[in-house]
């Protein structure tokens, strides 16, 4: 379990992470989404005690990371696949990490096997492809058999087989009751892996909800085609729906269920000849979310002008 409370990090005037509060629960995969520069990596570094928060707190399994006596047993993390000395072999890199906890070489070979890196284990890390580097990073994260696993962009650079492997691995870890916190810029990947989403933009928390809710919340629209469209539009606008014109005679309605739309049209004697519920993809939902954040900012400015 990871608990961040009003977590803040400022660099000079810039607030990279701005009073973010969230909880990452065990037993499920929590996705961490946000545009570049949104503060994802900074947040992850603060979770691991690498960067000190300017304000607020963050704990892992009930304690600040630095206070754990055997941190690799509690948390396994992959932050940057390239953060390995290129002159050292992958196996020796893991042996050095393992030595800090008295983890036996047997376990090192075990995680090398598990990550499919056994055959390259005695090659220098400098000769690894990005995908192999990611596997080494995952191997390091699993070394201490931790309760909480934090992976920053784990599928970056992986081939399709590797992507599938990470998906299965994270699912398995969550099913074992572990806390899995995963960042990715690949929405489609996140849609297939995560149960829960935490979205940040410009250092602020935008969403913290089950993935289905995020998709439903942002994208529940209904495509309507009707005769005498302008009359229907007045009617639906009065009922509080948000309307948007699509291509040709298409009308996109949000804020009303398809049945409510049909009832309204029926009571006014209007003919509807298409009524299609549209489910947004996670990608659309995500863009919608971050767009809303931006709109909120400019609206606030406009309000001041009036």
């Amino acid at each position: 379990m990871i608990e961040a409370t009003r977590l803040t990090k400022t660099y000079g005037d810039r607030r990279a992470v701005d009073e973010v509060t969230f909880t990452v629960q065990p037993g499920r995969v929590t996705g961490f989404l946000g545009p570049n520069g949104a503060g994802k990596s900074t947040t992850m570094r603060m979770i691991l005690g690498l960067d000190a928060p300017t304000g607020g707190t963050v704990t892992v399994n009930g304690r600040p990371y630095r206070q754990h006596r055997a941190p690799l047993r509690q948390v396994g993390a992959l932050l940057d696949a390239k953060a390995v000395h290129p002159g050292r072999t992958g196996r020796n890199h893991l042996l050095a990490l393992a030595a800090t906890h008295g983890i036996p070489a047997r376990r090192v070979d075990e995680v090398l096997e598990l990550t499919g890196l056994a055959s390259a284990a005695r090659r220098r890390a400098g000769s690894y492809s990005l995908g192999m580097g990611q596997r080494l990073g995952v191997a390091a994260a699993l070394l201490g058999d931790p309760q909480t696993v934090i992976l920053d962009e784990p599928v970056n650079g992986l081939d399709p087989e590797g992507v599938l492997w990470v998906r299965r691995l994270t699912r398995t870890l969550a099913e074992q009751g572990r806390t899995v916190f995963l960042s990715s810029h690949l929405m489609s990947e996140m849609a297939q892996t995560a149960d829960h989403l935490i979205v940040i933009g410009r250092g602020r928390l935008i969403a913290d909800a089950p993935i289905a809710e995020v998709i439903a919340g942002a994208g529940a629209r209904t495509l309507v085609r009707a005769e005498r469209q302008h009359l229907l539009m007045e009617l639906l606008a009065e009922a509080g729906a948000t309307l948007e014109r699509g291509e040709d005679d298409e009308l996109l309605v949000s804020g009303m269920e398809p049945r409510e739309i049909a009832v309204a049209a029926h009571s006014a004697g209007l003919l509807i000849y298409e009524l299609t519920p549209q489910r947004a993809s996670l990608e659309e939902a995500y863009l919608e979310l971050t767009k809303n954040d931006v709109e909120y900012q400019s609206l606030a400015l406009a309000g001041k002008g009036n």
Partner: peptide, 25 residues
């Protein structure tokens, strides 16, 4: 494995020694 697995100074020294002897430089 969880037993006696805490980070100790001796273990950190051992880790540093591993790092030292595993680099050609």
């Amino acid at each position: 494995r969880r037993d006696g697995s805490a980070v100790t100074f001796a273990r950190v020294v051992r880790s540093e020694a591993v790092k030292l002897r595993t680099l050609p430089s």
